[in-house]
Design a protein around this nucleic acid. Structure first.
Length: 898
RNA sequence: GGGCGGUUAGCUCAGUUGGUUAGAGCACCUGCCUUACAAGCAGGGGGUCGCAGGUUCGAGCCCUGCACUGCCCACCA
């Protein structure tokens, strides 16, 4: 095997290489016949607006991390990537593109329009999938093609018809939210509310047959053309005499009645309310009670229609200005009061939505919600984190009926047909020949399509072949986990839960992990349409995908949102670079070692790595014992972290191990051994080093797939081994665990750090080796130091170390003491008595405080009786040590004359 | 108007059942281009954990109130 390890870490090069490899697609393609535990994951797809969105980068990073982790631990994982909800986005893009060419999409005709949308979907879908591979996404996308396929349409119709037959789907005339840009109704969930500063216009309506006026307050004066009454509270004494009279509607010739309705709040505005049943939900209700006509004054695209007389054709906001001006000119505008109120905005277009009356299809939700609610309450569906669970429960308990129909041209057509003669409705799985009621052959299908979330809500079982009993369905349903952002908890997660349980009798997934959203610095949700998004592809190119993934993972603490920062990305990139350079060290040094006739195969073959750690002269070197013990600790912590979706904790653990332990201590420690004249020692050092490095790569692989893949291929692997992703995850075996080695190594680190600290404080020339004395009553420590003298001398930059049990005489030099040992660097130039005294005083201060608080607690009988034994014992142990340290510090201070 | 979260070092954030002197990265200061790595190495300074009470032997963590901030939900003109 030709070893090639570039001089510098280059993410572009590595990522390009392996993205292509993974795109061949056989790494994670689930095979139901394969051994291993089934583990099924559902994720949302990238937004089909042309490129990858940062939010999806997070979705896919987390899911890809888990998938690789599962796969390496022997689970047979199946992704179900994608939902159907990209439909509206797709349509919106095409509508916009057409508009730029001056074409109204509705003029194209339905068929032509659908063709264009399909074309775009295929093009952008390809782009997205290519981008997903570039970011390390390794899943099988074949099921994503299911979106809007005839197979899915079949399932959608099946579900619709069944719900209709169960009387859960119905058609009704209601006040709806209408988006004048998207030209469709919206469900309540698709309307965002935003506080806006507006005005409350007080308009004088002349009372017919008198010179009086009744003043109404309104935020939307342009709707007065649709007024069919003025309402007052029946108990409002100001207006009691006016009830039943008529007013002349300004700007028109119409006269409308003054009615009494308890809905009117006497204390708001003027206490008189204009009633516009066609354009306000409350007015609609009032109108029904009083049999008032509803006059729609708007066109579909938000302009005034013929009911607005001279205003016809004006945009609604222009009409508002004109109405105000005209009223003012006629002396009918009493005053204008500043008023902030919530306006409803279309989630997609951000246009102010208009309440309008129309006939739509609805789904009754109570029946569907109850079992889903119960499943979450009983824990059959686990929602993480906990506060999202509460949100889910609250929403489900207060659920409202779901508006299913949309006046769009893209999506699954509603399987309902109307006969021309009587308007009978026929709902059917297949296109019917005759009306189910009157037998008419003159049928027309409902032009509307279903909310995309309707088909998305079927995803976990529709993709597995339902309603047929397929092998996939048997094996993978219910799925194991759904990972997505909490912003679609209600849109998607709740609907999947309800529909899944209703149609399969089982929960669609056992766990839902809701991750944070990536926000901008100012707290906004990152969004392409708002222009606040970061482009993950560009960031990947800039910092490297591995760095990006590591950064996202390390920031993905559950419960709080993520603000991506340049600092963190740079830190992650540095980490990638660090790993690369550690690998470079191994291979560059190996070349030297190979001159002795050694072969990589004999040092790092898989079966050799599996048998590590090795012993030299009958004993495993301390540093090696320590490293494998640390590795075992880290593996356990990382597994635990992934298991509970603590991605940030896993990232942190790996970072600490790789950089702090492996690079800073272990490699530095064993450097001389690697070229040792002692052949056995050198060989063992190499074997252990490669074994540890290999395990560390596998440990890291889920988070940084490209880098680890590249480096893994530099090591000897079994014949035919394709990818590190198909290797095993390291196991924290008993052989590696070693408490004693951890403690002993920590002691040596303590000594070395003390030496370095003293040197630094004394401002010694870094190359100047000095003599030091070590004193401890503990024979074990002295023995350990003697056994590891070479490393301590080298890393502490000493010319010699005198180890003794005697108490140190304290003439010159600098001293560092712990409870267990004293260290002195003999160096005549130490003169900074003031500085040294100050440092010691400060340390004494801190230590005294700590001792005091412990003494106080330990002398408290209540504490002794109530605190756990372990806490007391540990505290006593530390107290003893700290007292010794304090004594030593005081002695030292006295000696310095402080 | 309801609900949820945040407030910890100069900055960005960890801190998982309350338990010894609260951590990381970046930034900063000091010294080093020590042939894996200056995207680095060694050392260092820096926080009364938003404010005020309370519970507890013990609180960054639990309770109450307040302030600031963000998000979600909500048909009051």
């Amino acid at each position: 095997m030709a070893r090639e390890i570039a001089k510098a870490y280059d993410p572009q090069l590595i990522e390009g290489k392996w993205a292509e490899f993974w795109s061949k697609g056989d790494l994670f393609r689930a095979d139901p016949a394969a051994p291993g535990e089934a583990f099924c994951i559902v994720i949302p797809p990238p937004n089909v607006t042309g490129s990858l969105h940062i939010g999806h980068m997070l979705d896919h990073t987390e899911i890809d991390i888990l998938t690789r982790w599962h796969r390496m631990r022997g689970f047979n994982t199946l992704y179900l990537p994608g939902t159907d909800h990209a439909g509206i986005s797709t349509q919106r893009v095409v509508v916009r593109q057409l508009a730029e060419q001056g074409i109204n999409y509705r003029d194209l005709g339905r068929e032509e329009f659908e063709k264009r949308v399909w074309k775009w979907k295929e093009e952008s879908g390809g782009t997205i999938q290519r981008q997903m591979r570039q970011i390390g996404e390794s899943c099988d996308w074949s099921r994503e093609k299911f979106t809007l396929s005839p197979e899915l349409s079949r399932v959608v119709r099946e579900v619709f018809v069944r719900l209709f037959e169960e009387n859960l789907i119905y058609r009704a005339n209601r006040m709806m939210n209408w988006c004048p840009v998207c030209l469709t109704v919206l469900s309540d969930l698709e309307v965002l509310h935003e506080e806006r500063a507006g005005s409350l216009w007080h308009v004088k309506y002349p009372v017919v047959g008198s010179s009086e006026f009744i003043v109404v307050a309104t935020t939307r004066p342009e709707t007065l053309f649709g007024d069919t009454a003025v309402a007052v509270n029946p108990e409002d004494e100001r207006y009691i005499g006016l009830i039943g009279k008529k007013v002349k509607l300004p700007l028109t010739d119409r006269e409308i009645p003054i009615i009494a309705d308890a809905y009117v709040d006497k204390d708001f505005g003027t206490g008189a309310l204009k009633i516009t049943p066609a354009h306000d939900p409350n007015d609609f209700e009032v109108g029904k009670r009083h049999n008032l006509p509803a006059i729609d004054v708007l066109t579909d695209d938000g302009r005034m229609n013929s009911h607005a007389g001279a205003y016809a054709g004006l945009d609604r906001f222009a009409a508002r200005k004109k109405a105000v001006a005209d009223l003012e000119a006629q002396g009918l505008l009493e005053k204008i009061v500043a008023h902030t109120h919530a306006v409803g905005l279309c989630e997609r277009s951000k246009t102010v939505v208009e309440p309008r009356i129309s006939t739509q299809w609805f789904c009754a939700m109570k029946t569907l919600a109850e079992p889903a609610l119960a499943a979450v309450e009983r824990g059959e569906i686990q929602i993480i984190p906990e506060n999202r669970r509460q949100e889910f429960l609250f929403w489900m308990r207060n659920i409202r009926d779901w508006t299913l129909s949309r006046q769009l041209w893209w999506g699954h057509r509603i399987p309902a047909w109307y006969c021309a003669e009587n308007g009978h409705v026929t709902v059917a799985r297949e296109t019917p020949d005759v009306c189910g009621t009157c037998g008419s052959k003159n049928l027309k299908q409902d032009p509307d399509v279903l909310d995309t979330w309707f088909s998305s809500g079927l995803w976990p079982f529709s993709t597995l072949g339902w309603p047929d009993k397929t092998a996939d369905f048997e094996r993978y349903y219910p799925t194991s986990v759904l990972i997505t952002g909490y912003d679609i908890l209600f849109f998607w997660v709740a609907r999947m839960a309800m529909l899944g349980i209703h149609f399969t009798g089982q929960v669609p997934f056992r766990a839902v992990y809701l991750h944070s959203l990536v926000r901008t610095g100012s707290g906004e949700k990152m969004s392409k349409s708002k222009g606040t998004g970061l482009d993950p592809v560009a960031l990947n190119e800039q910092y490297g995908t591995d760095a990006m993934r590591f950064c996202l993972a390390s920031m993905a603490a559950p419960g709080t949102d993520i603000v991506l920062s340049e600092d963190r990305l740079l830190g992650a990139r540095s980490f990638a670079n660090k790993i690369w350079n550690a690998a470079r060290f191994l291979f560059v040094n190996l070349e030297k070692y190979e001159q002795t006739g050694a072969k990589l195969e004999q040092l790092a073959a898989p079966e050799i790595r599996a048998a590590a750690p090795f012993a030299a002269a009958g004993e495993i070197p301390l540093a090696d014992k320590w490293l494998f013990a640390r590795l075992a600790e880290t593996i356990a912590a990382v597994n635990q972290a992934f298991d509970t979706y603590y991605f940030h904790e896993a990232a942190q653990q790996i970072y600490q191990f790789f950089w702090g332990d492996f690079c800073d201590w272990y490699i530095e420690w064993v450097k001389p051994d690697l070229q040792s004249a002692n052949a056995e020692r050198a060989e063992v050092a190499w074997k252990n080093l490669f074994a540890a490095f290999d395990a560390a790569l596998r440990l890291l692989h889920p988070v940084m797939p490209f880098l680890t893949e590249e480096l893994w291929h530099q090591l000897p692997q079994k014949a035919g081994a394709k990818s590190i992703a198909l290797d095993t995850y390291p196991v924290a075996g008993e052989r590696w665990k070693n408490r004693a080695a951890l403690d002993e190594f920590a002691f040596l680190q303590d000594v070395i750090k003390s030496l370095r600290e003293v040197r630094s404080q004394m401002k010694l020339d870094p190359k100047k080796k000095v003599q030091a004395d070590f004193s401890s009553a503990d024979a074990g420590l002295r023995a350990s130091l003697a056994a590891n003298l070479d490393a301590v001398l080298r890393l502490g930059i000493l010319s010699g170390l005198n180890v003794t049990a005697e108490r140190l005489e304290q003439p010159g030099g600098a001293v560092r003491s712990t409870a267990r040992f004293d260290l002195r660097i003999a160096y005549s130039d130490v003169v900074d008595v003031t500085g040294e005294s100050a440092r010691i005083k400060k340390e004494i201060e801190g230590l005294a405080k700590a001792i005091q608080s412990k003494e106080k607690q330990l002398s408290n009988e209540v504490f002794r009786s109530r605190a756990p034994e372990k806490v007391i014992k540990e505290m006593e142990g530390t107290l003893t040590e700290q007292r010794v340290e304090l004594q030593k510090l005081n002695d030292r201070l006295a000696q310095l004359g402080g």
